[in-house]
Design a protein around this nucleic acid. Structure first.
Lengths: 122, 122
DNA sequence: AGACAACTGTTAGCACTACTAACGTAGAGG
DNA sequence: CCTCTACGTTAGTAGTGCTAACAGTTGTCT
């Protein structure tokens, strides 16, 4: 798993933690820092810095929550949305290439295993 | 995957890269720096520091290769062997707890999926 | 043999991610 | 009103990854 993550990191222009946080924002909508930290199972200071990086790169923005001025509302920018989607397409294509070489029965075995894993790890 | 790795990291007293390198030494025997770096798909300077950490914690030792004095021979210590095994047992126990709750057919599905994955990712 | 190239590992310096501790500000409850 | 809690940031530390630059060793080729 570690090797896979590192490989992923090498040919992506967004680091895995940033990519993961960004995807939470894109698919889940704007969130507070605590929300994001919880979703990524990371402490607040860590997420604060990840968001800082996203903002610096123009992939997300931070604005105070009008209802509760302690909170910040973090949202993906259009650019962030595009970059996430672009990378996703590349990854899906690469994965498809690999899976295409497997027999149908093997593909089904992977699909079934993935389902079980998803339930088991939650 | 990232979340899983982080969870792993929190309740282990050895960091994932060190643990992974250590396991290469324990199961594969002594190795040169380049061997280790290759096995972990990491550059030499990175592995040099990981080994430094292992040595500092008494989990591995470094000695010059008598045949080729440019090389170093890195080997796990007894302590390293013990710590790896101990952690492994804890992880296996935790995993077994989770898997025990699955139906037999689900367990088989996971096993089959894992086989396919191993071949597909290589 | 002597010069030069290639190999092996380390050091230095950068970016990033993780943590805890400590802080400032904003809201909630007595 | 005053305190207590919640929310986020900043400071400081450890660890991991990279490239570039270096030192020592070995091999090669004249």
């Amino acid at each position: 798993m570690l090797r896979l993550v590192r490989r992923e990191e090498r040919d992506s222009d967004i680091s895995p933690p940033r990519l993961s946080a960004l995807s939470v924002l894109v698919f889940g909508g704007p969130a507070s820092l605590a929300d994001l930290a919880g979703a990524e199972e990371v402490k607040a200071p860590t997420m604060s810095r990840i968001v800082e990086g996203l903002v610096k790169d123009g992939l997300a923005n931070r604005e105070p929550d009008p209802a509760n001025r302690r909170k910040v509302r973090i949202a993906a920018t259009e650019e962030g949305r595009r970059r996430l989607e672009g990378g996703r397409e590349r990854r899906v294509r690469a994965l498809r290439e690999r899976l295409r070489r497997l027999a149908d029965s093997e593909q089904r075995a992977l699909a079934r295993g993935a389902e079980v894993l998803e339930r088991a790890l939650r």
